[in-house]
């Protein structure tokens, strides 16, 4: 894993708030269009890919705190650790050169989604009683009806949405990195590992 200090140049420190703003702006756009995805970790994944796993983790952590502090979605704050791991994994997958091809990017997204669902489930079960207070609770109800426990049902709900969401997010990041000018990419340590 890259040296922590190399992850944080001035340009990375400036990129992170912009990435957080991207998380929130895109997340709300998707929500407003009533598309059953979140896409609210694209900025986090992008930072992980461009600036390394530690920068990605920090972006996720701060992002969820900012969702809370800005009053947009307080219920995200307890999931800060999950968001941090998403950013960390994005960085690690990029370091392993998985962001070079689109299908590996999708695979990385699926794995990240699985991990995210697995860590969210206990937090969700303990802090939120296993529900989200939204439409996806139908899935939780269904699994509870089948006789599954609180934790497995919550995990099942996560599995039904997170991997797909993260696969699309990773694919979008793969696209964005390709659309960025070389001069911009050259500012970041991770750039050489994402392009051919």
């Amino acid at each position: 894993m890259a040296d922590i200090r190399r992850n944080f140049t001035t340009i990375t420190i400036v990129l992170i708030p912009v990435a957080i703003a991207i998380n929130i702006a895109v997340g709300q756009l998707i929500y407003a269009a009533k598309i059953p995805l979140y896409l609210d970790t694209i900025g986090t994944i992008l930072v992980g890919v461009l600036a390394g796993p530690w920068a990605g983790a920090l972006t996720g952590l701060v992002s969820n705190l900012v969702w809370g502090l800005s009053g947009l979605n307080v219920t995200y704050a307890p999931f800060a650790a999950v968001a941090a791991i998403i950013g960390l994994l994005a960085g690690l997958f990029a370091e392993a050169r998985w962001l070079r091809s689109w299908w590996k990017a999708i695979l990385a997204g699926l794995i990240t989604g699985l991990v995210a669902a697995a860590i969210s489930a206990p937090i969700s079960a303990y802090v939120w009683g296993g529900v989200t207070g939204s439409g996806t609770d139908v899935i939780v109800a269904m699994f509870r009806g089948f006789g599954l426990g609180v934790l497995p049902s919550t995990f099942a709900q996560g599995i039904s949405s997170d991997p797909l969401d993260k696969a699309i997010s990773f694919l979008l990041v793969w696209l964005i990195v390709r659309a960025l000018p070389m001069r911009f990419l050259a500012r970041f340590p991770g750039a050489s590992k994402t392009t051919d």
Binding site: T10, I11, I13, V14, L15, V18, A21, I22, A25, V26, L29, L39, I42, G43, L46, L172, L175, I176, A179, L180, F184, R187
Partner: peptide, 16 residues
């Protein structure tokens, strides 16, 4: 989504 993100990233360099 992609244009929104790309246009936001343009700002990063000048902000730095």
């Amino acid at each position: 989504v992609a244009p929104l993100i790309l246009s936001s990233l343009i700002d990063v360099e000048e902000r730095a």
